[in-house]
Simulated assay, not measured.
Amino acid sequence: MLLFAVSAGVPVVLVLGAVTGWSHSVIGAPTWASWVIAALAIFIGLPLAWFSTPLGTRIATNLLLKAYRRDGLEYVERQYLSKLAPYRAGLQLFNLALALDHAGDQDGALVVYRHAADCGSPPAMVNLAYWLSRRGEEDEAREWLRRAVEAGYTRVVPGVGER
């Protein structure tokens, strides 16, 4: 929600600053520069605000899911996620893994959970540990749970790594 507020609020403030001449008088920016800054804020901020809403997140996940099914994980990572910070890419991969999991593709979800966990996503680490535990790979499951706790994950996950 904070991301939405900042991403939507900053462009509005900059446009108002350009329209009222505030940015020209207060920060000394020429009028044309005020408008360029405002336009860039709109071009970057509003899509970011949109994709931080629940509907925008679902649309982004569906886009990744279609690309994954059509072209594979390497394509998705190269085309869509390479521009993001690793942690943010991990969150997007986590959403993709959840979508695959809900669609019944557990093998694909496991691969994507592993990539998301490698990017540092604690929820992906926990889900990866869960699936590894279900497959009988308890040692690796416990290792991913340990990493998730080290990364700040605080929820208790019953049944994982307890065999």
Rank of each mutant, 00 (worst) to 15 (best):
Q92F: 01
P123K: 10
Y87Q: 12
F43I: 12
A109M: 03
P47Y: 02
A85V: 02
G136D: 14
L73Q: 04
M125N: 05
E162C: 08
Y130A: 08
T154W: 06
V6K: 03
A8P: 02
A103S: 14
L14T: 12
A129I: 02
I37L: 15
G17E: 10
G56F: 07
P47M: 05
L132T: 02
K83W: 03
P54Q: 11
G104Y: 12
A38Y: 06
T53I: 00
S133D: 14
L2S: 04
G17Y: 08
T31H: 14
V26P: 00
V12G: 02
E162A: 13
P30E: 14
Y80H: 15
Y68K: 08
M1F: 10
A85F: 01
E74S: 08
G72N: 06
V157A: 13
W35K: 09
L81E: 05
Y80I: 03
N62Q: 15
A18Y: 02
G56C: 10
G9L: 02
T57P: 01
Y80D: 06
L93A: 11
N95S: 13
S82H: 07
A60G: 14
R78E: 05
V157W: 06
Y130V: 13
E140P: 10
I27Q: 10
G21N: 06
K66I: 14
L14H: 13
P47I: 00
L64W: 09
V6A: 13
V15E: 01
C119A: 12
G104N: 10
T53V: 01
V36M: 14
G159E: 09
V160M: 01
N62Y: 12
L81Y: 11
R134E: 13
D105Q: 07
E140C: 07
V36F: 10
G152F: 00
A33T: 13
W50K: 12
A129M: 04
H24T: 14
T31C: 11
R155E: 12
G56K: 09
G108I: 07
L98P: 08
K66N: 15
S25R: 15
R69I: 00
L55P: 07
P47K: 02
T20L: 06
W32L: 06
A60F: 15
